[in-house]
Amino acid sequence: MGAAPENPWKTLDSRLVYENRWISLSEHKVINPGGNPGIYGVVHFKNRAIGVIPLDEEGCTYLVGQYRYPLHLYTWEIPEGGGPLEEDPLEAAKRELREETGLEADHWEHILTLHLSNSVTDEMGIIYLAQGLRQGESEPEDTEALQVRRVPFDEAYRMVLSGAITDSLTVAAVLRLKLRLLGQ
């Protein structure tokens, strides 16, 4: 692929517009690649998106249902949450799986790293496959009212293909694992 091209954007000025414990929003005065002045808003995430696709010995996975406030929609997705940038992503994955499902796993494998909505954010997602599962007690956060469903993996795959699952981490994780199970 060769060397990456140089940045065609020129930043003239930047200012912080908003900040809370999860994100910050900055506005940048720029000269765009066409040579024209403009502005660019960037949402910086203070956490990584962490996803876990648990897969048991019978070929089933676990989906978490919850109401997603920004979308005003109830969604089904793999166990996922935020991991602080300074936290080891694998430790964050273990914590999220336990908190949301009560599951713990003996075997962990990183299967995917991706950027989410990279036109306006710097949010990065990291997804792990968890196997050798043991059931314990879940510990959801007070911002979570969760339902957990154990479903055959192929059912989760069909939910992705039909559009019943739209969460980007879940779609990416299920498709990556399906390719792996097909030997690709």
Rank of each mutant, 00 (worst) to 15 (best):
E80R: 12
T121M: 06
V120W: 15
G125I: 15
V160K: 08
E80H: 14
G83Q: 01
Y128A: 00
E144Y: 11
S162F: 07
E87K: 11
R150Y: 12
E104L: 08
H107M: 13
Y157N: 00
A105M: 07
L103I: 13
I165L: 07
E86P: 04
L129R: 01
G82V: 08
R150K: 09
T113D: 08
L146Q: 00
V171E: 05
L85S: 06
E155A: 11
A130C: 11
L116Q: 05
K94N: 05
M159G: 00
L146I: 08
P140D: 03
G136R: 05
D122W: 14
H115W: 08
N118G: 08
G163M: 04
D142M: 13
R98E: 09
Y157S: 01
V120Y: 14
I111Y: 13
W108F: 10
Y128N: 00
L169R: 03
T101F: 08
E87W: 14
E87L: 14
S138A: 15
V120P: 01
P152D: 05
E86T: 14
P84A: 12
D154V: 05
L85R: 12
E104G: 08
Q135M: 09
W108I: 06
W108G: 01
T170H: 05
S162Y: 06
E100C: 10
A145S: 03
E123V: 09
L133P: 09
Y157L: 02
S119K: 13
L169S: 09
S162I: 07
A130K: 02
L90C: 02
L146Y: 00
A93V: 06
G163A: 03
T113I: 14
G82N: 06
E87F: 09
E141F: 05
G81P: 01
